[in-house]
Design a binder for these strands. Structure first.
Lengths: 217, 217
DNA sequence: GTCTATACAGTGATAGAC
DNA sequence: GTCTATCACTGTATAGAC
């Protein structure tokens, strides 16, 4: 792995563990055993590193959160989405821990973030419409946007919510599974009688995963 | 108003507008037209100011979010709670914009925050049980805790969610009303047929308030 | 590409006069 | 209670040698 990639991955790891504010460029360099000067050879500044991480974040969503095509099984796709949301919430924790700060220091990044989130909102709405087509949920047109916002907010801020009530800031995988369960709770509220069973099965799956992880530690 | 109180209120205002990280003790002092030395006469340090603000925050909740007593009209109380949540979300925005940072720099504050949030969770659960008693919502025992967490998370992180998708960080009152609507959306999903109308009336109220505000600006 | 050394700009905080 | 002056410290970022 190139030094540049190593810097990115070390940054993600340290940011997630200690928060973006607490981690300086010096910390990143010394944790890697390189000099600060070397770090600044590869990146213009700290924001530059964060922009590269944001690119990874949006890549992840573009790759794993593709809109449904008409023939797809909506429920099957939903399961896939939940798994990739797990990945996202786990890997990019720090981004939402400090979202306001990060965006307020970098106008360009903020513009990119806003555009990306608007795009994402539409995709989430498409997924909800597809779930409705598939008879899995029942929801009024006018409520779709509101629900989509709630889903996005939950995915974004579940980890900060959890971290705020831990003395040790470290998250476990079980915490993320609990976040996925909150997403399912939101959907379940609109679930049709016929498919309640299937959604409950998904719920049981993540409940079991959360339990297993808890016992491992 | 004493200089001490002025410092607290100026801090809240500046923190809300520009974020806690961006505002230094020097900014606060110069915005008030006093010297930094004077500020440090009244407060030990920046954390000390924030602790005083947290005291205001928890006072507000203790005063306005009293548990229901058996005779109370649950729906009427709900309306009161929503209004005081509005107040809370409006006045203490910054606290949740930077929650992780703020708590990670002050162990004592974090302990206080965690204890307070645990207490609050129980109160929210009590309110939900009372709403169920009153026949307004229908919910399984096992889902109450999950819903209570979702409600708390929504109240806490609605403003950061909105701010993150604005180029200018300023919030309007209409944004907060939209947050209250999200709280109602969560409740509505568990609402009984008989009381759906009344909850929809509450919804219409805040929808109207959001509209009015929007047109004022 | 990588290092060492260092300049520079805040920020938090204090001492002592008034 | 309030001010002025000032300091120590930290984090970012660059210059120049290797």
């Amino acid at each position: 792995m190139s030094t540049k990639d190593k810097i990115i991955h070390t940054s993600i790891e340290l940011f997630n563990r200690h928060g973006e504010r607490a981690i300086t460029t010096n910390h990143i360099a010394s944790h890697m055993g390189i000099s600060p000067g070397n770090l600044y050879y590869h990146f213009k500044n700290k924001e530059d590193i964060i922009r590269h991480i944001f690119a990874l974040y949006s890549d992840h969503l573009h790759t794993h959160f593709k809109p449904l095509t008409p023939g797809d099984d909506a429920l099957e796709n939903l399961a896939g989405y939940l798994d990739s949301l797990f990945e996202l919430m786990w890997r990019f924790q720090f981004f939402y821990d400090n979202l306001g700060d990060i965006l307020s220091r970098d106008e360009e990044l903020k513009k990119g973030y806003i555009a990306f989130q608007a795009e994402l909102l539409e995709q989430v709405k498409d997924v909800l419409f597809a779930l409705r087509e598939g008879g899995i949920i029942c929801i009024e047109d006018e409520d779709v946007t509101e629900l989509a916002h709630m889903l996005k907010m939950t995915v974004s801020f579940w980890t900060p919510y959890i971290k705020a009530r831990r003395l040790s800031g470290e998250l476990a995988r079980a915490d993320i599974y609990n976040g996925i369960l909150k997403v399912l709770l939101l959907l379940k509220a609109h679930c049709t009688e016929q498919h309640l069973e299937q959604v409950n099965q998904l719920r049981a799956k993540y409940l079991a995963l959360a339990e297993t992880e808890q016992n491992d530690h």
